[in-house]
Design a protein around this nucleic acid. Structure first.
Length: 898
RNA sequence: GGGCGCGUAGCUCAGCGGUAGAGCACUGCCUUCACACGGCAGGGGCCACAGGUUCAAUCCCUGUCGCGCCCACCA
């Protein structure tokens, strides 16, 4: 027997463990079935499940469970990402509490610590995914630093290098002074910062007393200034072009150059050029062949070695002691000192508040510094071309399609991808350096040695590149590296390309685009056919969830409070395409109630001896009630399938909610009650048969989104014998015989009951009062139908008997006008005649309004001439029925007046 | 500066050429033998604004206003 109360917490762990152990989640390459494949966006191994993961993985699980039930060999590939910077940061902080530093520990010991830490805490998120109910193929779980995946990374690097698509280059990169590594453009985020804009004067060489004024927000970089640029057409500076300015602080003579980069509208119209510390200035520096000394070190402190030779006493500029004193100072400390010094020299002529967007490291949160360094790059532009084409030709489709524009915009203007990181945690770059600047990019050290021996004709000493690869480099290979590439495995053959990738828009560039590039390049085919992009989960007010705001909803707590099924259902129901999700607790409570409703409906069935009848054939159904609910179940099956095929998780959830609650529970089970309470016989058998059949359909249709409660009910009501619902067959939507007649019959009864209930409620008739139902003007069919459903009508509309009214209506009736008939409830003693009149007048008003609208249309010659025939016909029908209704309402009103 | 999206019932959102919908919230009635995490009934909307196209516009087009996001930009 089912428990009286539904308690999700008591089922979930047990059901999940059993399902996982049974192997029901596992794909089988040996099976002939058509594959269905999703690779999980690997969460950071450092991570714990947040609400965004819950959404992302719920949607994937719904798709996987749906396709699995359709008989596909479903593979949902699990795994985690080593998350270079994030993980290294966490462990550095950890050893910091022990008074240790990364450098103090040394590379090997530090990496050892990370592995130990991963062994301890790395399983958190996968345990949490299990709590969510994610049906991942756990034995295949991978980690981006696994041996196999590392092999794939090396292979890709070596091959791309041989193809010239990976190369080294010295250029300006985004440098994170906290982590002391290069980062890619994508890891930089602009943040608005309030600061100042200062106007400085640089003396002009040979013209004592003359200055050129420059405006800057970054005075601390002035030690690296190598020119002042003005616009070629700017008359104000025309005579200065070709002359030189004297850099205060060092006395360096720097050319005043004409360059279109300079914007006469901005600042003073003259801009100082610091080629080694600004991306725009770098371009100017290249054009004018300026030297590019660096004046900041890896930690963004003033660094003087590149300019040490200049530091001697010069008249009219700063004391070299002052400049030397800046060495090793943080850039923002140095800024203040420099400004003070310039003020002393009377070269600071303006300071205005100014706010601008400053690039910050997305992990460290500090302003990044452009820095001139030698790094490894990947030729993304070349790899992007076929990826763009794949989306243009529809080989890969984004859902919603809108996101393709975002993808194109970025891919068509893609910059070289800086893939080296000056970190320790990650895939070490497979490059060995030998004498005379030689380098060997090979699969391992032995191969590098061999190559070196060949080149030099002897053994030489090699040192391996210290750097590691960008985390996203290994993620980019995920759809094929997890399937065993570069080996040619059965899994790879069967499951690549994958079917769907489900992810948030925030990593389209980081991840989706790069998987497209690598997948096409190495596999010759796109990595996935559909990219489903979902929104961000926000709090109830629409604010982004963040720890600092304290508005974070922990999915585990939500699961504890409402059950995993309710959490999953809520996320699905709210996942409208192209929209962020504002998560509402109340909404979730509503869906928890839905799970309870389902439980209780099943319990009702069980109590009435409605149990699974495996051989029961819906085609044998004779009664309209059975046919009606079977037809409804088919419609729901079709709706659910259409919605899921189109990745409309919201419509899928809504369709099932409606059918289960409104059709099955509110009407079908209520109609079934009189039959179930009545004598045994074929009618009762058929109601029971239909009930168990439809409940079975509901359980199967709901399983992808509510795997726990459906599984429990499936088992307890013996639907699958011993077999789990996980691999039960998705329902067929075979049309029901004479469904239309069944719909006409039952919809008519529903209408009658609803109308009678409504009029009773509106004139405040207590439910305890039962009444006769007098009918006037009803067709024989209507009367016959009312007779057939008398039991249900009595029960649900609080009616005693139904009679045709002979002669005049009694006084004091409440009346409901339905179709051709008027139904009267003789309630003279209990009703409020005034309320009844108001009610009838209101109904009349509504009908009259509709009539006026239609008549207006009919009075419009152009409408009659140009509107579609079926639209006119439809309006004609409506006009007719409203007109008839008014007549009957008038008759009803007249009766009251008597 | 460039681009994208969104303004529909109190809230969160579907709908997107011809009767304006859902869930929750709200109001009233009901502890009726699955369920009060329930049942029944009900109130509530110039579909942001202004033009245009159309026989017909919440829906298509243009513009305005408001909100959000992405990209670029340290003078």
């Amino acid at each position: 027997m089912l428990d009286k109360a539904f308690d999700p917490a008591s089922l979930e762990a047990r059901l999940y463990a059993a399902a996982e152990a049974s192997g029901a989640f596992n794909a089988d390459p040996a099976r002939a079935a058509r594959p269905f494949t999703i690779v999980i966006p690997p969460p950071n191994v450092t991570g714990s499940l947040h609400i965004g993961h819950a959404l992302n993985n719920t949607l994937q699980d719904v798709l996987v469970r749906y396709r699995r039930m359709q008989g596909r060999d479903a593979l949902w590939m699990p795994g985690t990402d080593h998350a270079g910077i994030a993980t290294q940061m966490v462990v550095e902080r950890l050893i910091g509490t022990e008074g240790q530093t990364r450098k103090g520990l040394g590379r090997e010991a530090f990496l050892q610590r990370i592995w130990e830490w991963k062994a301890e805490s790395g399983g958190t998120i996968t345990r949490q995914l299990r709590r969510l109910g994610a049906s991942l193929d756990w034995p295949r779980e991978r980690f981006t630093m696994d041996e196999g995946l590392s092999k794939a990374v090396i292979e890709v690097f070596v091959r791309l290098h041989k193809e010239g698509l990976i190369y080294r280059d010295t250029r300006l990169v985004n440098w994170d002074p906290v982590f002391q590594t290069a980062i890619s453009d994508l890891e930089v985020e602009s943040r608005e910062q309030k600061g100042h804009i200062w106007t400085l004067r640089y003396p002009v060489e040979g013209e004592p007393g003359r200055f050129i004024e420059v405006a800057t927000t970054r005075p601390e970089t002035m030690l690296g200034d190598m020119a002042v640029a003005v616009h070629p057409k700017d008359a104000r500076f025309a005579d200065l072009v070709g002359k030189r300015a004297i850099l205060p602080l060092t006395g360096r003579l720097i050319p005043i150059v004409a360059d279109e980069y300079s914007d006469p509208e901005k600042g003073t119209g003259a801009v100082k050029i610091t080629p080694a510390h600004d991306f725009n200035d770098y371009g100017v520096g290249r054009r004018h062949e300026l030297p590019m000394p660096s004046v900041l070190d890896a930690e963004a402190r003033i660094w003087l070695e590149d300019i040490a030779a200049e530091l001697r006493a010069v008249d009219g500029v700063a004391d070299p002691q002052f400049v030397r004193g800046l060495a090793g100072q943080d850039r923002f400390v140095a800024r203040k000192a420099i400004l003070a010094e310039l003020e002393r020299l009377e070269l600071l002529v303006g300071a205005e508040p100014h706010s601008n967007m400053v690039p910050h490291g997305d992990r460290s949160g500090v302003p990044i510094e452009p820095r001139l360094t030698l790094q490894w790059y990947c030729d993304a532009a070349t790899l992007a071309k076929p990826a763009i084409e794949a989306v243009e030709t529809g080989k890969t489709e984004f859902v919603p399609k809108q996101w393709e524009n975002t993808f194109f915009a970025w891919m068509r203007d893609i910059q070289p991808w800086c893939i080296s990181r000056q970190l320790w945690w990650g895939h070490r770059i497979p490059c060995w350096y030998g004498p005379e600047g030689s380098l060997f990019v090979e699969r391992d050290e032995a191969a590098a040695m061999a190559a070196a021996r060949q080149k030099f004709g002897r053994d030489v000493e090699l040192t391996r590149d210290e750097d590691v690869l960008d985390t996203w480099f290994s993620s980019a290979l995920w759809p094929f590296s997890t399937l065993g590439w570069p080996e040619s495995t059965a899994e790879l053959k069967k499951h690549y390309p994958t079917d769907v990738l489900v992810t948030g828009f925030d990593i389209i560039f980081f991840w989706v685009a790069r998987m497209m590039m690598m997948g096409i390049h190495f596999m010759g085919e796109v990595p996935f056919k559909h990219v489903v992009i979902h929104g961000l989960v926000r709090d109830e007010k629409g604010a982004k969830m963040s720890k600092s705001k304290g508005n974070v909803l922990d999915p585990l707590e939500l699961i504890d409070a409402n059950g995993a099924d309710a959490v999953r259902f809520t996320l699905c129901a709210l996942a409208s395409p192209g929209r962020d999700i504002k998560l509402s607790k109340q909404r979730m409570e509503g869906y928890r109630a839905f799970a309870t409703k389902l439980w209780n409906a099943a319990r009702f069935c069980e109590m009435n001896g409605i149990a699974a009848q495996p051989g029961w054939d819906p085609a044998t159904a004779q009664t309209p009630l059975a046919r009606w609910i079977l037809d409804g179940a088919n419609a729901a099956t079709v709706e659910a399938g259409v919605a899921l095929d189109a990745f409309r998780f919201d419509e899928y959830a809504a369709a099932l909610y409606r059918f289960t609650w409104n059709s099955f529970c509110d009407w079908f089970l209520e109609f079934a009650k009189p039959v179930l309470n009545g004598p045994d016989g074929p009618e009762k058998d058929e109601v029971k048969g239909a009930a168990q059949h439809v409940l079975g359909v509901i359980l199967r249709l709901l399983h992808p989104v509510m795997p726990f409660v459906t599984e429990e009910l499936w088992t307890q009501l013996s639907y699958g014998g011993e077999a789990s619902l996980i691999r039960a067959a998705w329902p067929d939507a075979a049309p029901v015989q004479r469904a239309e007649a069944a719909r006409a019959e039952l919809d008519g009864v529903v209408r009658l009951i609803s109308e009678v209930r409504a009029v009773r409620a509106e004139v405040n008739v207590a439910p305890s009062i039962k009444t006769r139902l007098l009918v006037q003007g009803a067709s024989p069919e209507t009367m016959a139908r009312a007779g057939r459903w008398i039991d249900a009508i009595q029960r649900l509309a609080r009616v005693t008997e139904i009679e045709t009214l002979e002669g005049a209506a009694p006084s004091g009736v409440v009346q409901a006008v339905i179709g051709e008939a008027t139904f009267m409830l003789p309630l003279a003693d209990v009703i409020d005649l005034g309320a009844e009149r108001a009610r009838l007048l209101k109904a009349r008003g509504v009908a009259a309004q509709e009539i006026a609208k239609i008549e207006k249309k009919f009075g419009n010659a152009e409408f009659m001439a140009k509107a579609k025939e079926e639209v006119i016909e439809e309006n004609r029908d409506r006009l007719e029925s409203f007109t008839a209704e008014i007549a009957r309402l008038d008759a009803a009103l007249a009766r009251i007046a008597n």
